[in-house]
Amino acid sequence: MDLRRAGAVALTVFSYIARFCAILLGLLTVLLCFPGVAVRLNIMGLVMDLTQALPDVIAGYGLITSPFGGVFRFDFALAMVFLLVVDYAAQRAARALR
């Protein structure tokens, strides 16, 4: 396998990982809008760990109360958009290497 093809495969795998993480963040953002679901699934520890993993610039930014009683995490939505942009850029770079 030549170096360009290996780079394309690595970028494709990285792209899929970024897309998977973005989808999970989007799902988590929607689940947190409903407080009953968040309590039943016991995901508050995960939310706190993810909040600490985010950069300090956006961690805790834009906590908006949802009409359903939960909270919309704008920082998670920003991280999701960033991961989707990384996914798109990695896919484009992988296509260019092929």
Rank of each mutant, 00 (worst) to 15 (best):
S15A: 15
I17Y: 10
L27P: 00
V13E: 15
L41Q: 01
G36P: 08
C33R: 10
L27A: 14
C21Q: 06
P35M: 07
F20D: 10
V13G: 10
P55L: 07
Y16P: 00
I64N: 07
F34Y: 14
M48G: 04
A6R: 14
I43C: 04
F76C: 03
G7D: 10
V30M: 09
T29L: 02
V30H: 03
A18K: 03
I58A: 07
P55C: 09
G70K: 08
L11S: 06
I43K: 00
V47N: 05
T12A: 14
A59T: 08
A38K: 05
I17P: 01
L31S: 05
A18V: 02
L54G: 02
D56L: 05
F68Q: 14
I17H: 06
Q52S: 11
A38L: 14
R73H: 15
Y16K: 06
V30S: 07
L25Y: 10
G62C: 15
G7Y: 10
G36F: 12
G60V: 07
P35C: 10
P35E: 07
V13M: 13
M44Y: 04
V39S: 14
F34I: 13
F72I: 15
T65Y: 02
A6Y: 08
R5S: 13
C21T: 06
L27Q: 03
L25E: 06
P35G: 10
V37Y: 06
V47P: 01
F14Q: 09
A10Y: 12
T12C: 13
G70I: 08
L50H: 01
F76T: 03
M44T: 08
G70P: 04
F14Y: 09
I58K: 05
